[in-house]
Amino acid sequence: MRKVLSLLSIITLLGLSFLLHPNGSLANETEDNEYIKQYYKERDSDNVDLEEEEIILDALESYWQEDLKVGEILVNETNDLSIKPLVLSVEEEDKVKAIKIIESIYENVNAEEKELLYDYVVRHYKGIEDSEVLRFLEDLDAEKNENEISTFAAAASYKGGAAATWAYNNYNKYSKSYPKFTGKYGTNCTNFVSQAMHIGGGLPKQGKWTISRKNKKYHVINSAKQLNYSWKLSDPSPWISVKEFSKFWRKKSTVRGASKAQYVNNTKSYRKQQRGDIVIFHKGAAGVVTVPTHAMIITQKPANDYNLAGNSVERRAHPLKKAIKSYSYIEFYTPK
């Protein structure tokens, strides 16, 4: 959930993307967003969560714009125009080819371009079973993790069991020290998980993962205006946005992913997770263009599954096998 729905996504949702630029350059690229087209092809029109769909469409539009930049980087580095369609494809084999090209030129680009390329790999590796791609991502994650952990060396270690206990005991309680997204605006899932990690798990607020009250006027949030009036936080904020939370904490966590089928059919292979680990649920298109749309925290570890706590639907011991039914992919985050 983002504080403010981006102008691009609003225009896309209204079908008015041609208004962006009179010359039609960006307009045509927006109208040709293959990720959104694929999402609508696969979408179950009888089972749509409108708040989640807003998150998904907004993310798929931003992903498309970022991937256009990635395509430009690869074309500039290789002088091969045929690479751009691979970058923007929704086919797994094309994404694999694009990521392997990224690996081949990664050390040749500047720091800003490396960040764009890294984000591309993180966005699109889900659903890809190519061992070279997964190994490349593991190497990138290890490098990022080492850099981020050293940056926050003074941060307290995460107490997962305490975070789980806090989440279990507070799944339906709302502190006045944090906004309450039970009104007409936003969802409370990431806000709840952040509180569990901070209050229960002892992780200090850090970087953009922070929030503070400016005044007491608005606790229940009904609009972005109310949020901005009474609360101080970054925009977009990893404290309340699952997409930004995923991006922020990936660099400071051990991450393990699984498709719905992989988890349900082979649960025993995923028994390494512990109480207090975070579960990020993904939806999207074609398996390799997925969007983080929901976050919960493991509170119990019964045989053959995990029980989770979360908002915006208040739950404290919800089976993961049941929760995953509406999603295509999950990631387990173990903060360090």
Rank of each mutant, 00 (worst) to 15 (best):
M1C: 15
K3Y: 09
I10P: 14
L13C: 14
H21N: 14
S25C: 09
N28I: 11
Y35F: 11
Y40A: 13
S45C: 08
L57G: 12
L57I: 09
A59W: 12
Y63L: 14
Q65R: 10
V75I: 06
N76G: 11
L81M: 05
S82W: 04
L88M: 14
E92R: 07
E93I: 06
V96E: 08
E103M: 03
S104I: 07
E107M: 04
N108I: 12
E112P: 08
E112K: 13
E113S: 07
Y118T: 14
Y120D: 10
V121W: 00
V122L: 13
I128T: 10
V133I: 05
V133E: 02
D141P: 07
D141K: 10
D141N: 13
A142H: 10
I149Y: 15
S150K: 10
T151V: 00
F152Y: 15
A156K: 09
N169P: 00
N170I: 01
Y171K: 12
K173T: 08
K176M: 10
S177G: 15
P179T: 05
G183A: 04
G186M: 05
G186T: 00
T190L: 04
S194G: 00
S194L: 01
M197V: 13
I199C: 04
I199S: 08
G200P: 02
G201T: 00
G202D: 02
K205P: 05
Q206S: 11
K208W: 07
T210I: 13
T210V: 14
S212L: 05
K214A: 06
K216R: 12
A224G: 07
K225Y: 12
Q226L: 12
N228Y: 09
Y229D: 15
S241K: 05
F245K: 04
W249A: 05
W249H: 09
W249V: 06
K252D: 12
S259R: 04
Y263D: 10
T267C: 11
S269W: 00
Y270V: 08
R271P: 04
K272W: 01
R275A: 15
H282K: 11
K283V: 01
G284D: 02
V288L: 08
V288W: 04
T290L: 14
V291P: 06
I298D: 03
P302I: 00
A303Y: 06
N304Y: 09
N304I: 00
D305Y: 02
S312C: 14
V313L: 13
V313F: 12
V313M: 13
H318S: 15
K321V: 00
K322C: 09
K322M: 07
S326G: 14
Y333D: 05
